[in-house]
């Protein structure tokens, strides 16, 4: 990445995340300082229960930060109203959509909702964007299929197309590769890398596919019990961060191959 085109899209300052219940703060992770730039693909990794989802929920304003600030395009997240936020951040969640009876085209069209009028009339621009996204994600043939007819891999592509159609600067995906086979895991992550490059959107995804992420992302957010580290994968390997991810009794990180191995 060259320095001249680096435009900061999302920035956190001393962010602490966690839960508040009955005046009691449960901090899950603190001192999070990350800077996401235009056109970057960022992976978010960490063990189960370490706070990946909490971070995603905080960044998307589903829950409030305990401390610190989040800025999207230099605007404080707390001051962005829901509709404006919908034009800045789009989501791909782990939970299934409510109606599987939607056709692929209808589903992708729903991504245009924040941009349409009260009854949802599509302008020519909306239609062009929808067609372009169908092409970018390579699902034009599926256009008229119903969602219940799709495989998990196809459905994930459709969900990504819907987020793309929302035409936001940031796309956040919560574990987009769970439920997929090895080929489709790689396919989806590779697709995300390509989309970040081609569309200039900032794409953040959480994943357990650490070895794949290392190969594809620009930067990684690694959450461990002690700290949150944000850096390029090669630097993280040099620092030996990956060996602090999990308990050391069973698996060990192999720096040469960039993947975990089971201890013999």
């Amino acid at each position: 990445m060259t320095d001249k085109k680096e435009h900061i899209i999302l920035k956190t300052e001393n962010l602490s995340i966690g839960y508040t219940s009955k005046k009691k703060h449960t901090t899950i992770a603190s001192n999070i300082n990350i800077t996401l730039k235009k056109g970057e693909l960022i992976g978010l990794i960490g063990a189960n229960g370490v706070g990946k989802s909490t971070l995603i929920r905080t960044l998307t304003k589903v829950q409030a930060p305990l401390q610190g600030h989040i800025f999207i395009n230099d605007r404080n997240l707390l001051k962005i109203n829901p509709l404006e936020l919908a034009k800045e951040v789009s989501l791909v969640l782990t939970e299934p959509i409510a109606s599987k009876n939607l056709s692929v085209l209808e589903l992708v069209t729903l991504g245009r909702q924040p941009h349409t009028n009260w009854i949802g009339t599509l302008s020519q621009l909306d239609k062009d964007i929808i067609n372009a996204t169908l092409e970018q994600v390579n699902i034009k043939d599926l256009k008229h299929k119903k969602c219940f007819e799709l495989s998990d891999g196809q459905l994930q592509k459709v969900m990504i197309a819907r987020a793309l159609a929302q035409d936001t600067n940031i796309i956040i995906l919560d574990e987009p590769t769970s439920h997929l086979d090895m080929y489709h895991k790689a396919y989806i992550l590779k697709l995300l890398q390509q989309l970040a490059k081609e569309t200039g959107k900032t794409i953040l995804f959480s994943s357990h596919e650490i070895d794949l992420a290392i190969q594809l992302v620009d930067n990684l957010i690694v959450i461990t019990n002690e700290q949150v580290v944000y850096d390029q994968p090669c630097n993280l390997i040099k620092k030996g961060i990956f060996n602090t991810l999990f308990p050391k009794d069973l698996i060990v990180f192999d720096e040469l191959t960039g993947s975990f191995r089971v201890k013999k």
Partner: peptide
Amino acid sequence: LSSIKTLNTLLLGEKYAKSLGLN
């Protein structure tokens, strides 16, 4: 009639609907 767009958004489920700016 005023809820037509809302109803379409709700087909995605509430979390997605919220991410699309729906109250």
